[in-house]
Amino acid sequence: MDMPMPTEPAVLAATTPSPEAAARRRMRLAKLRPLALATLAIAAFLAAWQAASATHLDFFLRFDNIPAPSIVFARAVAVVPSADFLNDVIVSCERVFLGFVLAALAAVPTGLVIGRYPIAHELVFPLCEILRPVPAIAWVPISIMLWPTDFQSIVFITFLGAFFPILLNTLLGMRRVDPVLVLAARSLGAGEGAIFREVYLPGAMPAIFTGLAVGMGVGWVSVIAAEMISGQSGIGYFTWAAYSLIQYPDIVLGMVAIGLLGLVSSAAIRGLGRLAMPWLATQ
């Protein structure tokens, strides 16, 4: 697998390529290396897991109930296209999306305003600092009592999880805006509204997008945990129910689905960030 290529010198000798061609070949190989190494590590992980499950390894760690990757894969082929599974995925996406968008709509303007006006900071920030250390999951019982429906209480928990990272990063972004840019804008006739729109918002935007990416991650953590505790549907519920119903392959399937959804979400945020901040693409 990882053998040094014994045929390489022979090929080189046979065609006697120019040094440039050899350099190009080296470049191509260098580009392939990260992909090859990543594949190698993933394959080794799956192989070790498969071996441990197949042999029912029981050495402190107990693999006798852990389904092998091959079994998970076979189960995925059967379950993934089913309407129930798809419904669970869609419900979770809706909750995350709604909670996240509401959090962004609330946290970004709040961050911009309290970053600009000390009086707003003095009013709002201490309250935030009290609420922030409470993990979103700890809100589950209160949230169930507070909101009429399951769906609303889970969206609320997702909202709480996403809100604070977005708020704090927006504030951080505001602090990083170079004061000379604000002076420049004022001396060019910009009023307060224009300074927000043209200076503070774009200036804070890189940090805001960092906050959105973190907020999206925490949003997924919150929705999964909330669904496991209180849900009747969703991919978190699916994963926990699989444990209760002794459908062990479905647990892993749920985990993989959650991982993939998180991956796609953060890729979407990064893509949006690139579209919203074309000036960073030139660096």
Binding site: A184, S187, G203, W279
Partner: peptide, 13 residues
């Protein structure tokens, strides 16, 4: 009154 600053003050965006 047009102002030119010592440090670079163009809007990067």
């Amino acid at each position: 009154r047009g102002m030119v600053f010592q440090q670079y003050s163009l809007f990067p965006w």
